[in-house]
Design a protein around this nucleic acid. Structure first.
Lengths: 351, 351
DNA sequence: TAAAGAAATTAAATCGATTGCAATAACAAA
DNA sequence: TTTGTTATTGCAATCGATTTAATTTCTTTA
C-alpha cells in the first residue's frame, strides 16, 4: 500500500490518550463538557450527573491530570498550606537541626499531612521587626505555627492582635496576647529538682541558658523547689547553649574549676543532659552514684544513652496535635485559649 | 452646631492612610498610576521613572503592602518554592523525625532560604504509583528534592524521564535515570569493616535492614572487606529497623541468643549504633574492650554518646549544598550528573 | 400534552499580578 | 514651531480554576 504524504491537519489528528492534559479545559474538551462541569466533577459536587462525573474522573486519571494549585489558590483565596516558622532570635548558633525542633516538626508534618495540608518550612533570623508581618501578609499560607517564642514575644503579640490564624509553641507568659501551646516549664523544672532532692541530692546545678523564656521558667521552678525544700545553697547555674558542641566543653570546663562538684544536675534539654553524661564520665564521675542527671524533653535519644537518661517529658505528639487543632479552629474564625500541658517525670537509670 | 444625619456616600470618605492596601490596584489608585506601573515599580524595572517608582514604593511600605503570591505564581508560572519529599516506602514504622532526615532537612532549609526559596515539606506513604507525578504536576513547586530512594526507584526513574528539576538524595544505583547526590555506601561499609579488622575484630556483625538500597550497599561493602581480608566467617546480619525503639530490643534479643558474640559491630546508622552501645552495656559487655562499634552518618549525637561513637561520616552540609545547587541548575534547564561523595571514618572511643 | 418544577450544564465573571503592545509625554534637534 | 526620538505609562490580554447566574434538558404532575 502506497503511503501518501500530506500535511497533517489538526482535525485529522486524534488527541492521543497519553498526552497529559494540562488544564481543566483540556479535560473539558475531551469529555465534551464545559470547564465548570469538570471543576465540579473533580471536586465531587453533587450538581453533576453521576454518569458525567464518572466519565470526567476516568479521563482525568487516564491523563494523569491534576489541577493547577496556583489558579485554585487565587480563586478560592486559600492556599492549602500552613507555615511553620522557627525564629532563631537569641541564639544565632542554634541550628534548625536541633533535635527538639525536628521532633516537633516531624509530628507537625504528620498532623498536617493527615489534614491534607502542606507544610511550608521557614527558618528566620529576625533581623527587623517585620519578619512575621511580611510572611503573614504575603498570602502564601492559611495559617502559621511558630516554634518557640525566642525573644520575639513583642512581635508575636503585635501580629496576633490583627491576624487570627497563628499559634505558638512555647510556655505561657504572663499577659501574652497570642495563643500558645506548651508545657508548664516551671512545673517541669520543679519536678526535676524535687526528684533529685528526693534522691538525696543537695548541691544542685542547672545547665542551660535562661535567655530563652522557656529555659528561664525551668530555672525558676528549680529555684522554687529548692527554696521549698529549705535548701539554702544557691543553685549552680551554668548558662550553656543548647547545642552539644557548646555544652560539652562548657560543662567540662565547669567541672575542672574544682569548685564543689554538684551531686544533681538539671539539664535544660536532653542534648545538654547527654553532654553532661559524657563530660561526667570523662571526668571520672559515675552516674548515678556520684552525680544524678535529669534531662528535659524526653526525646527518643534520652532512652538510648548510657545510662539511660531520666527526663522531663513534654508530650510532643499531643502538643503537635493541639497546635494543629487550634490552628484550624482559628483558621475557621474561632477564638481559642492557650493550652498548658503538664510535663511528667520519666525516671531512668541516670537518677 | 446641629448634626445632620445623612447616608454616608462613598466619595465622602477619604481613604484612610492606615488601611492596608490589599491589591496592586489599590496602590495604583493611591499613587494615581496604573496597576502595570505599580507592578513594574515594585519589581524594580528600569522602565519606570525613578520619581514615580520611589513614590510607589513609599506608598507600598507605608501601607504594609505585599503582593498576592498566588496571583503572581499563576501568571509567571513559577512558585518560588521547592518541595522536599520523604517517601517512607519500605518501613512504615520509620517516622519523619528520624534524626538523619531531620539533619539533612535542616541543611536544606538553610540552603534554600539563602536563595530566597520556600521549602514545602511533604511526607509520603507511597500507596499508589502516582504519588510523585501528582505532586510534580500540581504546580506547587518549581523543583523537587527527594530524600531517600526507599523502594521507589522505578517511580523516580519514570518521573525523572519527563520532569527535569528533580534531585534525589541517595546512593548511586546501576542504571538509574534520575540524578542523585549521595555518598558511596559500599565504600562506607568497607571503611567501617576494615577499621574493625585493623583493630583486630574477627567476628563482625552488621545491624540494619538491607531492604533499603543504601543499607544493602553498606552491607555489600562490609562483605567485600571481609572477603578481601580473608576472613571467611559469614557476617552476622541482623535486619533491625532504623528506629531506636525497634533496634534496642532486637539487639538485646540477639545478644541473649547465646550464639557467638561478635567482637565488632557495623551499625547501619548512628541511632542503631547508639542502641547497640546501650544494649552491650546492659548485657555487661564493655566497649571497646569486648566489642567495638562503628555507627553510620556521624550525626551530632554520635560524638555525645558514652563512649563517643566512631562513625562513617557523610558530610550532610556539603550534600545539601550539592542537592540545592544541582536542583537550581536543573530548574534552569541544565542536565546534570549525579554526585557520589566519599564518606570518611571518624574514629572515636568506641573502637 | 402542556406547564411547572427539578436537574444538569454552560457561559461568563472573577481572583490579582504580570507583560506585550500601543499610546502618550517629554525632550532634543532642526 | 515642527518633527523625530526616546522615556514613561496605560490598556488589555493572560495565567487556570471556581462559582454565580442563566440556560437548557429532563421529569413530573395536572
Amino acid at each position: 500500500m502506497a503511503m501518501t504524504k500530506r500535511p497533517a491537519r489538526t482535525q485529522d489528528v486524534p488527541i492521543p490518550i497519553d498526552v497529559r492534559a494540562r488544564t481543566i479545559t483540556d479535560i473539558a474538551r475531551l469529555a465534551g463538557v464545559s470547564a465548570g462541569t469538570v471543576s465540579r466533577a473533580l471536586s465531587g459536587s453533587s450538581l453533576v450527573k453521576p454518569r458525567t462525573s464518572e466519565k470526567i474522573r476516568m479521563l482525568a486519571t487516564a491523563h494523569g491530570f491534576s489541577p493547577n494549585i496556583a489558579a485554585r489558590n487565587l480563586r478560592t483565596r486559600r492556599t492549602g498550606a500552613v507555615g511553620v516558622i522557627i525564629p532563631l532570635g537569641h541564639e544565632a548558633g542554634q541550628h534548625i537541626s536541633d533535635p527538639f525542633f525536628m521532633a516537633l516538626l516531624g509530628h507537625l508534618a504528620d498532623a498536617l499531612t493527615d489534614r491534607g495540608y502542606d507544610l511550608l518550612l521557614s527558618r528566620v533570623l529576625p533581623s527587623n521587626k517585620d519578619w512575621l508581618a511580611q510572611f503573614v501578609d504575603s498570602g502564601r499560607v492559611d495559617g502559621v505555627i511558630i516554634i518557640g517564642q525566642s525573644d520575639q514575644s513583642a512581635v508575636l503579640d503585635e501580629v496576633a492582635s490583627r491576624y487570627l490564624p497563628i499559634v505558638v509553641w512555647g510556655g505561657h507568659i504572663e499577659g501574652q496576647v497570642y495563643c500558645s501551646v506548651g508545657s508548664d516549664n516551671k512545673l517541669g523544672g520543679r519536678l526535676a529538682t524535687e526528684h533529685l532532692i528526693n534522691k538525696g541530692c543537695r548541691r544542685i546545678a542547672f545547665f542551660g541558658d535562661a535567655a530563652a523564656p522557656e529555659i528561664a521558667q525551668r530555672l525558676d521552678g528549680c529555684r522554687e523547689a529548692l527554696a521549698e525544700a529549705g535548701i539554702d545553697a544557691t543553685i549552680d547555674y551554668l548558662p550553656v547553649h543548647l547545642t552539644a558542641e557548646n555544652a560539652h566543653p562548657a560543662i567540662l570546663a565547669r567541672l575542672s574549676e574544682n569548685r564543689i562538684v554538684p551531686d544533681g544536675i538539671v539539664a535544660a534539654s536532653d542534648v545538654v543532659g547527654m553532654s553532661a553524661l559524657r563530660a561526667l564520665s570523662e571526668f571520672g564521675l559515675s552516674v548515678p552514684s556520684d552525680v544524678r542527671v535529669v534531662g528535659y524533653d524526653d526525646l527518643s535519644i534520652a532512652a538510648q544513652t548510657t545510662p539511660p537518661l531520666s527526663s522531663i517529658k513534654q508530650d510532643l505528639a499531643t502538643g503537635a496535635a493541639h497546635l494543629v487543632d487550634i490552628l484550624f479552629r482559628r483558621m475557621a474564625g474561632e477564638a481559642t485559649e492557650s493550652v498548658v500541658m503538664a510535663p511528667s517525670l520519666i525516671c531512668r537509670s541516670s537518677t
